[in-house]
């Protein structure tokens, strides 16, 4: 048997390893139609529920609220899916007792997380495309109404979702499989304070201060501004991007510390049992 490999520290080897994670997850998706169903099912349920609420509101002649709610549902799904898909990739390695196999390869932590992130991006794009189409067909709301602002809005939410997922993965590494509920629920901690479906001004004043430290708050407020006819709030987007950098840095720091702790305490080995 002959094997030729790229030098392990070369860019080609790194790309090949990240690609390996992505291809594996894509293959798993292809082999499991239930997961494709899941990508479409929950976002669709949420869209339909909120869509009918907006139909009701439309009867009261409040078109701005209608657009704001539908836009919020769509953008929330970006954050939610970005977070959940990365967490799922990691949890599937635990559930299939494959995590140790991954950790004895030359794959670095950064490459592993990059692979999960790239794969999640494909699922999020697919999911949003389905939802955007449904919103247009069922309720006449075109997500593109938001215009070019959609690009920074999506980017901020994607990066925040990935940061939350990495933090959730870190919790599982630190506290074991029992902590996997965090992977599902962490993103929802931010829903009430990020002003997803209502302006931040309705929150108690103390919570408003906290809310502006959440990148998503700037996005949802910005979306309402744009739908209300204002210009793209680039200052808000800059603040959100800066906060994203802080969140990602904290999440990666947490991951590094918990991985080191898991190796020191032998917890990583227990994921293989």
């Amino acid at each position: 048997m002959t094997t030729t490999a790229f030098p392990p520290l070369s860019a080609a080897a790194r790309r090949r390893r990240i690609g390996g994670v992505v291809r594996r997850d894509l293959a798993a998706l292809r082999r499991s139609p239930i997961r494709i169903f899941e990508i479409v099912f929950w976002p669709t349920v949420e869209l339909v529920v909120w869509g009918f609420v907006t139909v009701y509101l439309r009867a009261g002649d409040v078109p701005f609220i209608v657009s704001a709610l539908l836009g919020a549902v769509l953008l929330w799904q970006i954050l939610h899916r970005a977070s959940n898909e990365v967490s799922m990739g990691f949890l599937e390695d635990i559930w299939s007792r494959n995590l140790l196999n991954m950790h004895v390869t030359p794959l670095t932590a950064a490459e592993y997380l990059s692979g999960l992130v790239v794969f999640s991006l494909t699922k999020v794009v697919f999911s949003v495309a389905v939802m955007g189409t449904l919103a247009y067909v069922l309720y006449g709301f075109g997500i593109l109404t938001v215009g070019v602002a959609l690009v920074p809005f999506m980017a901020v939410l994607l990066v925040l979702g990935w940061a939350l997922a990495i933090a959730a993965i870190s919790c599982v590494l630190r506290f074991g499989e029992g902590a996997q509920v965090i992977a599902w629920s962490l993103v929802f901690v931010f829903q009430p304070i990020a002003g997803v479906f209502y302006p931040v001004s309705v929150l108690p004043s103390g919570l408003q201060v906290v809310a502006w430290f959440v990148p998503a708050t700037h996005v949802f407020q910005g979306m309402r501004d744009v739908l209300g006819g204002a210009a793209i709030p680039w200052d808000r987007m800059a603040a959100a991007a800066a906060l994203d950098v802080v969140y990602v840095a904290l999440a990666l720091g947490l991951y590094t510390v918990t991985l080191r702790h898991a190796r020191a305490k032998g917890r990583l080995s227990r994921f293989g049992e």
Binding site: T4, F6, P8, A12, R16, R17, R24, T105, L107
Partner: peptide, 18 residues
């Protein structure tokens, strides 16, 4: 859920095989 060839292909890539 993966086929054997898909598993092996993924790991071959993780080892940077050409």
């Amino acid at each position: 859920v993966l086929q054997v060839r898909e598993v092996l292909d993924a790991f071959a890539r993780l080892y940077g095989l050409r």
